[in-house]
């Protein structure tokens, strides 16, 4: 694996307006075997904002998202060149344990995936595996995280029931609660609403709006309305290239690239 830091000054990163950047992607290429799925990505993601990744299936947006917490390490034959820096530090540096990285960079998946455990045990999973035993700390984390995920009022009387008895939308919010129990800095969301009905989707979108005051959120979505509703910044990917990145309202109303315009006006994708 190449972990060399990219020569940052030589790179022309897209302008990152507003907030300071927390994630900096530099000359990032990614391969599954011989198949290159990301080509020379340079991208700065601002802190405590929602950044949406859009693009047709297979454009590499999920792959980039899953690179931020190195989930792609689990895939055979995956390799990369270039670098991703988190608050100035390479996520591939030898002194950053991948399990520590994943605590800092939480993830919510496309399909909600609560464990076959109680609601309580789902939320404290991240703490338990980190060795937290103190009951008060765990209780406090459960209430804080479930409140944070706007789920507390619905489940506070049945914390010891199985998480599998919840509705689809509740399960997804439980997964968000489980992720924020670790007190991450960044939340990665990989099409978190694609399996939910409109009402549940609306609740998650509202939640995303609330969470961004505390977390940097990167949201992959197939739904362009969702991108316009939720994200402050949007990145459009196509066939492994980052085509355009900028403020959401600018990108959707006045795209500079022809391919972006074609995609957002529904001419392909």
């Amino acid at each position: 694996m190449t972990t060399d830091a990219a020569p940052t000054e030589a790179v022309t990163a897209p302008p990152a307006p507003g907030a300071p950047d927390i994630i900096r992607v530099r000359d990032f290429n990614f391969f599954y075997g011989a198949n290159q799925v990301l080509k020379g990505i340079n991208l700065d993601i601002p802190e405590k904002r929602v950044t949406g990744f859009i693009g047709p299936s297979g454009c590499g947006k999920s792959t980039l998202l899953r690179s931020f917490n190195r989930m792609n390490d689990l895939i055979d034959g995956a390799r990369h060149t270039g670098d991703i820096r988190l608050a100035g530090r390479s996520i591939y540096s030898a002194d950053l344990e991948v399990i520590a990285l994943r605590r800092l960079v939480g993830m919510v998946f496309q399909k909600s995936n609560p464990f076959a455990k109680t609601i309580y045990e789902n939320v404290v999973y991240g703490l338990r595996i980190a060795g937290v035993r103190d009951r008060d700390t765990l209780d406090e984390a459960v209430e804080r995280s479930l409140r944070g995920a706007a789920l507390w009022n619905e489940v506070k009387d049945r914390l010891n029931d199985s998480a599998l008895g919840l509705s689809g939308g509740q399960m997804q919010r439980l997964c968000i609660a489980r992720a924020i129990a670790n007190r991450p800095k960044i939340l990665l969301m990989d099409e978190p609403c694609s399996a939910l009905d409109p009402i549940a989707t609306m609740r998650i979108e509202e939640l995303i709006g609330e969470l961004k005051s505390e977390y940097t959120i990167v949201l992959v979505t197939h739904n362009m309305q969702q991108a316009t509703r939720c994200s402050d910044f949007t990145a459009f990917f196509y066939l492994g290239d980052l085509v355009e990145f900028g403020k959401t309202n600018v990108l959707f109303t006045n795209p500079t690239e022809k391919r972006t315009e074609d995609y957002i006006t529904g001419r392909f994708g």
Partner: peptide, 17 residues
């Protein structure tokens, strides 16, 4: 299902855990 493994790794679990 692999989604359970991903959920666990995503929360910072080791393979053993």
């Amino acid at each position: 299902q692999n989604t359970y493994r991903e959920a666990s790794y995503g929360l910072g679990a080791t393979r053993f855990q």
